[in-house]
Simulated scan of single mutants.
Amino acid sequence: MTATTPAAAPGYRARRTLPLRVEARRQLRRRRTLVIGAILALLPFVLVAAFAIGGDPGTRSTGRISLMTTATASGANFAATALFVSAGFLLVVPVALFCGDTVASEASWSSLRYLLAAPVPRARLLLSKLTVGLASSAAAMVLLPVVALAVGTAAYGWGPLQLPTGGALAPGDAVLRLAVVTGYVFVSQLVTAALAFWLSTVTDAPLGAVGGAVGLTIVGNVLDQVTALGDWRAVLPAHWQYSWADALQPQLEWTGMLQGASVSVSYALVLTALAFRGFARKDVVS
């Protein structure tokens, strides 16, 4: 006798389960989202206060021109400096949190099995969670430079972006370059997002998924400092995390950013595929 697939309930549409707007509203109202947003919005004010207390960083120059020494030259320079001091670690945290907490938190609340019993298809659930997590991460990436540009302009004026290598970019061009930098920083963090998301599907502990992603990212940064690895460092996403500095040159250079983006996206695709494959076969009891 041939087995028959049970008919779906009248009106049931898998694509209508767990709408993105519902998931986005749930995540937006969570306390950790508000805390991360507040921290990123307050950081530019903290930097302005630090420069006010410590004085103009350019007066302490040792002959090397860097983003830090030109931080108070204009609002655009201040925004670039805010990205420089936060891209290595601070911006990793919201990405790991938004993508690593998403599925594991449902398991820790014992609500994951009820979502699947709704019934929400597993692939649909993961897709909704990942989409909202990435959108939240992108919003965090944009929030910092936008607030920094506004705060820096109010504090230091609207002017050209003084380049570390010499020369300057007109304010309009500077905004476009900062947009390129922000976009690249987001793309370079896709590997962290995918790693956190994969860990979120294999553990019921949100802290484990978030901490694991942040910890492995730190390990990658440490390994990139080991010069004995030679050309092997090129396969580490951390090796390319500051390639966005090529956007702050008189002539925009894409080579490093394209290489870094390809490495990050490649890792992200593999880790995301592992997440979907593993969760499809997982025995969900939480």
Rank of each mutant, 00 (worst) to 15 (best):
R29Y: 04
A73I: 07
F186V: 12
Q259R: 15
P164Y: 12
V219M: 13
G157Q: 02
L195N: 00
R177T: 07
L199E: 04
V85E: 11
V93K: 06
V202R: 11
R31C: 08
L125Q: 03
T33C: 01
N221W: 15
V46W: 01
T4R: 15
A9N: 03
A117P: 04
Y156W: 09
A135I: 12
M141Y: 04
G88V: 11
S108D: 14
L40E: 01
P121V: 01
G212R: 00
V35K: 06
F276H: 01
F45K: 14
P57G: 00
A234K: 15
T70I: 12
T102Q: 06
A247C: 08
R122K: 08
A135R: 05
Q249R: 14
T182P: 00
P6K: 07
V120W: 01
P250D: 09
T131W: 02
S111C: 09
A104P: 05
D283E: 15
S262R: 15
P121I: 00
V270C: 09
S188G: 13
A3F: 14
S243K: 04
L43M: 15
R233D: 01
L115P: 06
Q27Y: 03
T33V: 05
V235A: 13
L252Y: 10
L223P: 10
L91Q: 06
A135C: 14
T227Y: 08
W232H: 13
T5D: 06
A7V: 15
S286F: 07
G37P: 05
T165P: 13
A82N: 05
W109N: 12
